Amino acid sequence: MIVVMKMGAPEAEIERIDQELSEWGLTPEKIVGKHKVVIGLVGDTVDLDPLQIQEMSPWIEEVLRVEKPFKRASREFRHGEASDVVVSTPNGPVHFGEHHPVVLVAGPCSVENEAMIVETARRVKAAGAQFLRGGAYKPRTSPYAFQGHGESALGLLAAAREESGLGIITEVMDTADVEKIAEVADVVQVGARNMQNFALLKKVGAQEKPVLLKRGMSSTIDEWLMAAEYILAAGNPNVILCERGIRTFDQKYARNTLDLAVLPVLRSLTHLPIMIDPSHGTGRYEYVPAMALAAIAAGADSLMIEVHPNPAKALSDGPQSLTPDRFDRLVQDMSVIGKAVGRWHESAVALA
């Protein structure tokens, strides 16, 4: 249930309503929008009469029920307004959201060595990326495949961050690793295989760094949003959703089916920012540019693209990785679409 305050409602009146609703056993969450303040009510609201709440103050415009099972993630919860997830980086704050320029995230699947990760960071930053992605811990289907260098790779990511000024996005797989990863990462990633690891979702929800939540390989949109709800319910309001391809009946020509239809669907359902990962979504570098351009045209807030200085020798996901030169060309092409839809960052335009 949400309480929409009238424009210009006094702060003292909002605090009074907040206090009274708390005494009813509810948990009010104040959401400050561009023009109005909305109070989201979390708790047992089934038997509450909206008219009873409406009568609490002449400054209440309307009281609405949130019909979706995902309450905090629902667009209704913010009265239709989009979230602005702000991430602090060495180069300043970066905004993820539908009213901001497209954010570019690029880098290798795995952190292999210092020279490789620092070189990649320099190249993707020069092309216009604001974040470096790279796995220190890697979930792999085969127990014999490269699993990442673990904690030592976090130090390499920190070195790349220091050298380039890029923000860092890296994956957490275990609740025991959340704190040490959050010390290095600017955004903590929960991968597709852990989307419904509820203990992990609660843990990353209890820490302060923004969370990137990838869609599970066979997950419905409702299941994905309910996973986001776990993070939001644990206290972390800064969640970014990432579509990375799903399993369908035809995996012969591409690694996954990249579901670009989630862009308009999610836009109608949730206020959370949306990232698209065309690298995992297709599994082949030659398909990545077309899907990246399509994602921007369809309204993506961010793109995550795998880049490796020598994909043929990559320890993981080489076939879907672009070389730095290919990434340079792709950013130039993306800038055309990005500028056409009014979603391109000025510095990225200059670089492109």
Rank of each mutant, 00 (worst) to 15 (best):
W344R: 07
P143M: 13
I53L: 09
M56H: 06
V66E: 02
K180G: 07
G318Y: 03
Q130G: 13
M56E: 07
H345R: 15
S302G: 06
Q54D: 08
M173R: 10
I2D: 00
F77W: 15
I60N: 02
A121V: 12
L232I: 05
A295N: 01
M226W: 01
H345N: 09
E29H: 13
A12P: 00
R215S: 07
L258G: 11
L315A: 12
E208T: 12
R133E: 14
S74K: 01
S316W: 04
D325A: 14
A340S: 15
G235A: 12
A297N: 08
E23T: 05
L200S: 00
R284M: 14
D333L: 10
I31R: 10
D317G: 05
S142Y: 08
D47H: 13
K6E: 15
E179H: 08
M217W: 08
D250H: 09
L201W: 06
A352S: 15
C109L: 02
A199T: 12
D47M: 10
R284N: 14
G97H: 07
V211S: 05
A106L: 04
S74A: 15
I17L: 15
R193G: 10
E163N: 07
S219H: 10
G150F: 07
I53M: 05
A290C: 09
P28E: 02
P139K: 12
R140C: 01
R65F: 12
A126M: 14
P210C: 10
Q320G: 11
I231T: 06
R78Q: 07
E15M: 02
N310I: 13
V87L: 07
D259G: 06
A297Q: 06
T175L: 07
E229C: 01
R75E: 03
E76G: 04
K180P: 06
D186R: 06
G338I: 04
S57Q: 07
Q332N: 10
P264Q: 03
L266T: 09
A106W: 00
